Amino acid sequence: MELTIRKILLATDFSKNAWQALRYAAALAVQNKASVVCLHVLPEIPKELSYSGGPNLLYGYGPGYSGVPMSGRRSKDGKHSDPASSEGRERAEELARDHIRSLIMKLKAESREAVVKPEDSLIRIGNPVESILHQVENGDYDLVVMGRRGHGSLRGPRTGGVALGVVSRSSTPVLVVGTPKS
């Protein structure tokens, strides 16, 4: 059996584990002369749970993780964006792309070769497991790389639900990366 890695899907949620996964994907891409496609999946926010209809589920999530709720960010016209609105989704996608660009710049600063490019990043909205598996099935990938555990609230040596869902259902090999012990 010949092991050939030409195209890697990096699934990221911007967590510490996902940062380590990005570093592994970049190193593997250099070693194998492979390309890397970066995928971030934003959760679909039902109107009933949105900024205007109830609790803000985007606070502390993904690119808004800096502590500023994504719905609290102002749109171009100075108003707050409701994450369930099309404007809110567009703003969330824009923030995710900006975050991917900043991670790639951080990776380049570590003297890694430029194998991960912002233009090869994908932002999807939906269920993370289903979206990752859909991309794997339709993208001709040789390997999926992702963090062991994301922003979930459970502590301890557990593997997150998204990683377990992808590993258990993917026909493509999956490398699950944890955060190194410090």
Rank of each mutant, 00 (worst) to 15 (best):
Q135T: 07
A109S: 05
I100G: 06
L107V: 01
K79F: 11
V68E: 11
R149S: 14
G147E: 10
S66N: 15
S102I: 03
G150Y: 06
L58V: 12
K117V: 09
V36D: 03
E48F: 11
L22K: 07
R112P: 04
G161Y: 05
K16E: 13
N138V: 11
Y141H: 01
P128Y: 07
S131D: 10
P157I: 13
I123R: 02
N56T: 15
P69Q: 14
M1T: 14
P43H: 12
K47E: 08
G78E: 05
T172G: 02
G54F: 02
V166P: 02
S50E: 10
N56Y: 15
Y51A: 14
P83R: 04
G165Q: 01
A163N: 08
M1N: 06
L107T: 04
A11H: 07
A18C: 07
A163C: 06
V176S: 03
G147R: 08
P173N: 02
Q31F: 07
Y141L: 03
N138K: 15
V129M: 04
D98A: 14
G62N: 14
P118F: 08
A92E: 07
E48S: 14
G178C: 08
P157A: 13
P118T: 09
R158G: 07
P55A: 15
K181G: 10
V30F: 00
D77S: 12
I8H: 06
T172W: 00
L133A: 02
I125S: 13
E94A: 13
T4V: 10
R74L: 12
G156I: 07
G78K: 00
L103F: 07
A163Q: 03
L28F: 05
R6I: 05
N56R: 10
K117F: 13
K108M: 10
T179G: 09
L9A: 03
Y65D: 15
M70W: 04
I132P: 04
S111D: 09
E44P: 05
I100D: 09
V174P: 04
I125V: 15
G60W: 01
G72D: 11
S121I: 11
I132Y: 01
S131Y: 03
P157E: 14
Q31L: 06
V116I: 12
G72P: 03
K181W: 12
R97D: 07
Y59E: 14
E90C: 15
L10A: 06
V167C: 05
R149D: 08
R149A: 13
E2A: 06
A92S: 15
G62I: 03
G139M: 02
R101Y: 12
S182R: 13
R112D: 14
K7Q: 07
I100C: 10
G150R: 03
A21R: 04
V177K: 03
Y24D: 14
L175R: 01
A26S: 01
H134G: 15
R91H: 15
Y24N: 13
R97F: 06
S131Q: 09
N127L: 11
E48G: 06
K76T: 13
L49S: 08
P180Q: 11
E2P: 06
V129F: 00
R148M: 14
P83C: 07
M1E: 09
I104L: 04
P46I: 06
L164K: 12
S121C: 08
S121N: 11
S81F: 06
K16F: 11
D140S: 12
H40I: 09
E87H: 08
V174L: 01
G165P: 05
V162P: 01
H40C: 11
S121G: 11
E93W: 05
A96E: 14
L49D: 13
